[in-house]
Amino acid sequence: MIRTFLYFLSISLLLAITTQAQVKDSIRIKPLADSIAHKRDTTTRKLVTKPLSKSKDSLVYTTSGGLRLGLDVSRFVVKAFQPYRTDITVQADAQINKRLYGAIELGYNRTSHSDTNYTYKGNGQYVTVGVDYDFLNKKATGEKNMVYGGIRYGFAHNTYESPAYKLHSDYWSSTIEGSYPKTSMTAHWIELIFGLRVEVLKNFFLGWGVREKIMVSNSASDTFQPIVIPGFGTGGKRSQFDVTYSVSYYIPLYKVKIHVPREKPKKQ
């Protein structure tokens, strides 16, 4: 319980730092936003470039698109609470157009547990693929902060076994020993995500997300569900809630066209 509280506290602190960083960002960007909208000046931000063409209703800008590579650090916190679990998750996302980002996540899980009743060993990999939709209205065209909702398709392959287990019966005063052989299973699920990513240093992002995972199909036998399905969570569950906290680095690679509606001149 105390550990839960401490964890909660540390996450809250991290969140506070993130929020603060965002506030600073918006203050810094505000005058820039005005200058872009009205003067189309070159700004101090390198990411903002010249308008490509003029039309009556909108201006087309290009902004730098690239690959954001991240590590989900919340998986290391999971290890502290569930010592039998070792998870590593890397994330990547790339901007497709103004609002849409393609996202992919790769991960590995190893589960190992041993007590007086049974021993368990399992390991597997997973991948999720999907898109994020950015709700945040940008203050500057080069701004990369995101408040997003996303959807993912997840697939996991897991191998697991129970090298030894015991079955007790008090009434029959018996103990039977057995083992469950190495078995492979696959799982498919859908994830719904809400989260944000904030550029705290140049090209360096912190982000958190909450996600609900809904199992679509799971090939594991009902008599022995794996303790952990990589990327999903507890085996045998229909749905699973999860929180992620990631640090990522952004590598600019290409240009993305962005349409900015032109503000109508005010009538005086």
Partner: peptide, 10 residues
């Protein structure tokens, strides 16, 4: 709820 879900299930 996320932290409750994070408890040691063993």
């Amino acid at each position: 709820t996320a932290f409750v879900a994070c408890e040691d299930e063993t």
